[in-house]
Each structure stands twice: as structure tokens, then as C-alpha cells.
Design a protein around this nucleic acid. Structure first.
Length: 559
DNA sequence: CCTGTCTGCCCC
DNA sequence: ATTCTGC
DNA sequence: GCAGAATGGGCAGACAGG
């Protein structure tokens, strides 16, 4: 199949906004797709380069891609950056520069095939060692050399996982079902169990429902975790799950799926990365403490201070989670414990269609808790909002993030963010920050300032100290208004970054304050969002570093 | 050998 | 992670 | 309400280059 056909489809998808129309377009496209590339095409359409279970990645980000585009089109770095700033998209940048390219030099006129693109992406992902960056560049440039401008647009976007067609996994799932006349539920199920949308497309095409049914849950094949939805407070959360539910402490760690096939134990993250090697504490503990051969359990990996029993800052867990070297040394300083909350499979039996109440029971049945190593997440079953609220406050006092409220009758729905699981976190203080800079946005924020650099005053209210950036919490109208407002305040511009005269104050909400190696105050806000623009305040009215320190100290008490 | 920059369907 | 938006 | 697309901080690893 010609890559140009796929590029054509991408472009049409980009133009239409109706989801139904997107689905039928994709369905039609898949139906006429040759069998040998239908898997690749399905993956590509879903903005993926490799299947979900595949740990490979291209290792080409926006910086490298800019160089690739510059070299491939004979442009300068600043031309590329300037155009990128204007178009808000490196794919469009490559397309535009290719149109301008003189047709005489280095043009390879062989048409690009989808299979070749896939193979080249594989090669790019696999090069490593000295000279790897250059080789990745050369391979990517080879694609662009053969690409027509429009193809270049999508090759670049694909490599960066920024297709912006309004199509991702679940849309392609529906299209597969429609294309091959198989049930949506079966496609969904096969996808969640195989974690390979390409395989699902191919099986649906060649073997139909019968083939899809053969794909089944089994240990050592991680699935997407079920996701929680935010709720304002515990009372609302309890009402959402039908008045009665399980209230559990929400720990600030990394979500992990622990698999055992009876011989080996493996640990996976939320995004299905294999982190077994980094977390030997969990592997050893699980081998000792779980009375079953085969199982899939789910829990939170957390760093706890063994002396105080208090949770350590999330940043300390990050020292452990993806470590490859010096694991034993760091393990002594920052032990990781596992707090289990769900059970998806035990000795040949899948529990994903079993109610949570029963899954928890099975979990309790097979796990022998061991303090500081493997524990069950604390749970209270209640229909009393007061009791739930008490649990919430106790969780906060203990230094935890908040609580989860779960529907006891709910089955396990992988990858879905629904009302079967709700998270409740406290509302924090806000900070009035002076806006001192910004970054031009990408995609739908092209031509707009996409995020703003924030600062607070030092003790003497003389100097401004950076505390982070904010890029969410503003609606489209505000984004427009702010860009217009700040355009008059620009004092310096380099690349996509801008500096402003300090005049405007943002009220910003956040979950936490952390130590920062990056910002001049030495602190950074975690999960910042804009609450409102303080038109009523001048820069001199913004908060000072003392307030930041005070909040940080309060957080520190808990660790 | 050390340091800086970039990257991650990264973790949150 | 949070938030906003079109369907 | 879902699905998609904007955007945040910070860590380890992997290279590049001095």
C-alpha cells in the first residue's frame, strides 16, 4: 500500500470533526486494506508506531526532528524554528519547507510504501550506541527524501506521536468492528487482553469473531489499568457509586500490575513498562507473601520512611522506578513497599468480570501481609458519608493524597475512566503569581501563548523568583484574550520562548509544592492550573517566596 | 572521564 | 497528572 | 460523558562533545 493513500486518509480525518464520520471513513479504509499491512495501518491510524506491549520507541523528539527537517529540506535551524512557531506543528513545517525545496537535488522519486515506513521506524527504534543519533537522523531523512510534502507532514507527526487527527485507540476499535462486522465489545476485549491493536485488526479481518474470542487474559501479559474519575468530595463520590462503596486510602506512588506464572514474577507500570528489574523488593516480597501460583494483582508501589512510617515525597520514588544501575544501593536508602488493592486473575481464573467486592475477597484470601513489604490497601465499606469523610481526613493526616471510592458491584474495565472508581483529593491553597514569560503553543494552540512562566517575589519584594509554569485551566476565549494582552508586554523573544514585562498576576491552584532543580526559587508547583487572572491586582500584590516556603514546610511535616 | 542536552505511547 | 471542547 | 488534545514537574538513561 502506498503511504500516500494513508496520508490522504489522515488528511480527511483531520478535516472532519464528527466521530461517526471518522469511524466510517476508517472502517472503509481498513476494509480495502491489503491483509499484510492491515495491522500496521490500524496502529498508524491510532497514532501508534508500535503495539502497546512493545517497549520500543523511536527516540526522536522535537529537537532532533527540527534538525532532521532542516537537513532534509536544506533549511537553517532558525528557519525551521520560526516556521514551527508560526504553524504550531513540525509536520506542517516539514511540509511547507519541502514545497519550497528545489526539486533538483537529492530527490528520490520511488513512492513510499506503508510497509517500508514501518520497517524504517523499526530500524530507528533499534539503533543504539555510539553514533545512534546520527543514524536515527539519517533514517528519518531517508523517509523525508522520498516523501511528497503531504506525506512528510504525517511522517513527522507519526514519529512524534502527534498525529492530531482526532483519532486514537478507541475510535480505531470502533472502526475495526464496523469494517469487519464483528462486535465492538469483542474488539475492545481482544485489544485490552492482547494490547496490540494491529493484531486485533488483522485477526478481525482474517478470522472474524471466532479468532477474536481466542485472545484471552493470562499472566505475563499486562493489561491497561482501569482509571479513576475525579470527584469533588467523598459524599458526592459515595453517591456516584450508588450510596454505598469501598473507601480506600489513595497513596502517592506508582501504580503497578504484578504478574506471576508460577515461576517468575514480573512488575509492570501503568503504561505497561516492565520495571521488574528496578523493583526487586516487590518481586521478593510477592514471591513470599502470595499463596497462589498464577496471578495478576494490582497495587501502588510507594516509598515509605521505615522509621516514621510516613510516605516519602513522590520524587524519591522516582529514584527507584526506572532505575537500571546501582539498584541495590538505592534500595537500601529508599525501600519500596507494595500496597495491593485489586486482583484480576488467580490460578487459571480471570476475575475481570467479577464484582470488585469479590475480587477484594480473593485478594485477602491469597495475600499474607508483611509490614513494610506487602500490604493490602486500607479499606472501609460504608454507606455513611460521615464515616467516609473521617477516612478521608485520616488519610490526609497520615500524609496521603486522599481516598478512592469504589463501586463494590463493578467489574474491571481496563483502560476506562468511569464512575466505578472515583478519586477524592483535597482542595489546596492558591498562589498569586507574577507572569514573567511564556511559550508559543502547538497544534490547536498555534499562534497563542500555550503556557505561562510564573514567579513570586523574594523576601524584600525586589526580585522575582520562578516557581513553575501553567498551561491548563484556561478556556479558548481566555487563551485568546491573554495572548493579545501579553503581546504588548513582550520584552524578549528567542525561539518559542518569550519574556514579559512583569505586570499581570495569575491566581494558580496546585496539588503540592516540590523542591525544584530547575526554577530559580528552588521550588515548583505540582499540577498547576489557572484559576483566574487577577485583573484587580498589580504585580506588587503578588505572593512572596515566604508563602511558598510555608506551604512547603506544611507538606514536609507529613513526610 | 565528565557534563550538558534530549527523550520518554515516562512516572505522576 | 489537570483541564477544556466537540460530539 | 466520552475521547481527544492541549498543557504541568522531575527523574534516569542515553548520547554527544569537550
Amino acid at each position: 500500500m502506498y503511504y500516500s493513500s494513508l496520508a490522504e486518509a489522515f488528511e480527511r480525518l483531520e478535516r472532519i470533526s464528527s466521530r461517526k464520520a471518522k469511524i466510517s471513513l476508517i472502517a472503509q479504509f481498513l476494509r480495502q486494506c491489503p491483509e499484510d499491512v492491515v495491522d500496521t495501518v490500524a496502529l498508524f491510524l491510532a497514532n501508534q508506531v508500535f503495539p502497546g506491549w512493545d517497549p520500543r520507541d523511536l527516540g526522536i523528539g522535537s529537537k532532533l526532528m527540527r534538525k532532521v527537517i532542516a537537513t532534509a529540506t536544506g533549511s537553517t535551524d532558525s528557519e525551521v524554528t520560526e516556521l514551527f512557531k508560526r504553524l504550531g506543528d513540525l509536520g506542517l513545517t516539514a511540509e511547507e519547507l519541502l514545497k519550497r525545496r528545489k526539486t533538483s537535488t537529492l530527490l528520490d522519486s520511488r513512492p513510499l510504501m506503508v510497509g517500508e515506513v514501518r520497517e524504517t521506524f523499526e530500524k530507528i527504534a533499534e539503533v543504539e550506541g555510539e553514533g545512534a543519533v546520527k543514524r536515527k537522523m539519517r533514517l528519518m531523512m531517508g523517509l523525508l527524501a522520498r516523501a511528497k510534502p503531504k506525506e512528510a507532514r504525517y511522517l513527522v507527526r507519526q514519529a512524534l506521536s502527534e498525529l492530531r487527527t482526532g483519532v486514537r485507540e478507541s475510535t480505531v476499535e470502533e472502526a475495526i468492528a464496523q469494517a469487519f462486522g464483528v462486535s465492538r465489545k469483542l474488539v475492545e476485549r481482544a485489544h485490552m487482553l492482547s494490547n496490540d491493536l494491529g493484531l486485533v485488526a488483522k485477526v478481525a479481518m482474517t478470522k472474524g469473531e471466532e479468532g477474536l474470542r481466542e485472545i484471552d487474559l493470562r499472566p505475563m501479559r499486562p493489561i491497561k489499568p482501569m482509571l479513576a474519575q475525579a470527584a469533588r468530595n467523598v459524599k458526592e463520590a459515595l453517591a456516584e457509586v450508588g450510596g454505598k462503596g469501598a473507601v480506600e486510602i489513595k497513596l502517592d506512588g506508582a501504580r503497578v500490575q504484578v504478574h506471576s506464572d508460577g515461576e517468575e514474577v514480573r512488575v509492570y507500570t501503568r503504561r505497561i513498562e516492565d520495571v521488574t528489574h528496578a523493583l526487586p523488593d516487590i518481586v521478593e516480597a510477592v514471591k513470599d507473601c502470595v499463596d497462589a501460583d498464577e496471578f495478576i494483582l494490582e497495587g501502588e508501589a510507594v516509598a515509605i520512611n521505615p522509621e516514621t512510617g510516613k510516605p516519602r515525597p513522590f520524587q524519591e520514588l522516582l529514584h527507584r522506578i526506572k532505575r537500571k544501575y546501582d539498584i541495590e544501593e538505592v534500595r537500601k536508602e529508599i525501600p519500596v513497599e507494595l500496597h495491593l488493592f485489586d486482583c484480576l486473575y488467580v490460578d487459571g481464573e480471570s476475575l475481570v468480570d467479577t464484582p470488585f467486592r469479590e475480587r477484594r475477597r480473593r485478594l485477602e484470601e491469597i495475600v499474607r501481609e508483611r509490614e513494610g513489604e506487602v500490604m493490602l490497601v486500607e479499606q472501609v465499606i460504608t454507606d455513611d458519608p460521615k464515616e467516609a469523610a473521617e477516612m478521608f481526613h485520616r488519610a490526609l493526616e497520615m500524609g496521603h493524597e486522599g481516598v478512592m471510592v469504589k463501586d463494590l458491584d463493578a467489574n474491571y474495565t481496563p483502560g476506562v475512566r468511569g464512575k466505578k472508581m472515583l478519586k477524592v483529593k483535597p482542595v489546596l491553597e492558591t498562589l498569586d503569581c507574577v507572569v514573567i514569560g511564556g511559550i508559543w503553543g502547538k497544534g490547536k494552540r498555534k499562534g497563542l501563548i500555550g503556557s505561562y512562566l510564573l514567579a513570586v517575589w523574594d523576601e524584600n519584594k525586589e526580585n522575582l523568583l520562578e516557581v513553575g509554569k501553567v498551561g491548563t485551566g484556561m478556556d479558548d476565549e481566555t487563551l485568546e484574550r491573554l495572548t493579545k494582552m501579553f503581546e504588548d508586554l513582550i520584552v524578549e523573544e528567542s525561539g518559542r520562548e518569550v519574556r514579559f514585562k512583569p505586570e499581570v498576576v495569575f491566581e494558580v491552584e496546585f496539588e503540592d509544592i516540590q523542591k525544584s532543580p530547575k526554577y530559580s526559587s528552588g521550588f515548583a508547583l505540582r499540577f498547576p492550573r489557572l484559576v483566574r487572572v487577577r485583573d484587580d491586582l498589580g504585580p506588587e500584590d503578588a505572593d512572596t517566596i515566604e508563602k511558598v516556603r510555608r506551604i512547603y514546610e506544611e507538606v514536609l511535616q507529613k513526610h
